Amino acid sequence: MISPKIEQFLLEQEETFLTPADKLAVIIDSHNMDHAKLLLSHMSYSRVPVVTEDNRFVGTIGLNEIIQYQAENELSDEELYQDISLIAKRDVATVKENYELAEVLRKLIDESFLPVLGEDGEFLGIITRKSILKAFNALVHGFDIIEKNK
């Protein structure tokens, strides 16, 4: 259980936690592996969400999975025509839009980001470990000052 005062302080910064889906790089599940490999090789992200055309969350993909699949199957870049959904990581930790802060903290220990899903599985965005750490940074550097001013 999170201390109520600490949880309240962190939740006051909650609007900075979510990076909305329309501000993110995503890969559509029907894109082929070659296309995804090209996109990922030009991004600074190690993993990105994979979604359907109608914005339903499928999983995540990283350049490592594509390269590993390509090597294991001895495929050239031209032979990477299969849909990315074939190798997308599906057993990904996620949270619903009405998440509990303790759940987010617990899951972000092992993940760099958590996909946030609506009630029907629609992809709403991500909560990054970085956004939570920024809130904790504010907490450890300003909590006493804020408490004194109350």
Rank of each mutant, 00 (worst) to 15 (best):
60 T>D: 00
128 T>M: 04
123 F>S: 06
18 L>I: 09
51 V>W: 01
67 I>W: 06
146 I>H: 09
83 D>S: 13
116 V>K: 04
117 L>P: 06
128 T>N: 09
27 I>H: 02
134 K>S: 13
59 G>E: 07
93 A>W: 06
16 T>C: 04
86 L>S: 08
33 M>L: 09
118 G>A: 11
98 N>P: 00
119 E>A: 07
34 D>R: 08
53 E>M: 05
55 N>L: 03
29 D>Y: 14
2 I>E: 13
114 L>G: 05
26 V>Q: 00
144 D>W: 15
8 Q>D: 10
17 F>T: 00
33 M>G: 01
58 V>F: 04
107 K>I: 07
114 L>C: 10
113 F>L: 15
64 N>G: 05
82 Q>E: 07
10 L>E: 05
79 E>L: 00
74 E>R: 09
2 I>H: 05
91 D>G: 11
54 D>V: 10
124 L>G: 01
40 L>T: 11
74 E>L: 02
94 T>Y: 03
139 L>M: 11
110 D>K: 07
23 K>W: 04
87 I>W: 03
48 V>D: 14
125 G>Q: 02
4 P>W: 14
91 D>A: 12
43 M>F: 01
30 S>Q: 03
47 R>S: 11
55 N>I: 13
105 L>W: 14
40 L>G: 04
119 E>Q: 06
45 Y>L: 15
3 S>P: 11
28 I>R: 14
145 I>K: 14
60 T>S: 09
56 R>G: 02
63 L>C: 13
64 N>A: 14
94 T>D: 03
70 Q>K: 03
41 S>I: 10
96 K>Q: 10
81 Y>S: 14
61 I>V: 14
93 A>M: 03
27 I>C: 06
44 S>A: 10
102 A>Y: 13
31 H>I: 06
119 E>L: 00
119 E>K: 03
14 E>F: 07
15 E>S: 00
116 V>H: 08
15 E>K: 01
142 G>P: 10
145 I>D: 12
133 L>P: 00
137 N>F: 12
57 F>G: 00
107 K>Y: 08
49 P>K: 12
38 L>P: 02
26 V>K: 02
79 E>N: 03
94 T>N: 04
139 L>F: 05
113 F>I: 12
91 D>H: 13
34 D>I: 03
75 L>S: 02
67 I>C: 07
80 L>I: 00
138 A>C: 11
130 K>V: 09
37 K>G: 02
89 K>P: 04
125 G>S: 01
89 K>N: 15
29 D>T: 05
60 T>F: 00
138 A>N: 14
108 L>T: 14
137 N>C: 15
128 T>I: 10
99 Y>V: 06
3 S>W: 13
63 L>K: 02
125 G>Y: 01
69 Y>V: 11
92 V>S: 07
120 D>I: 09
31 H>Q: 15
88 A>S: 01
7 E>T: 14
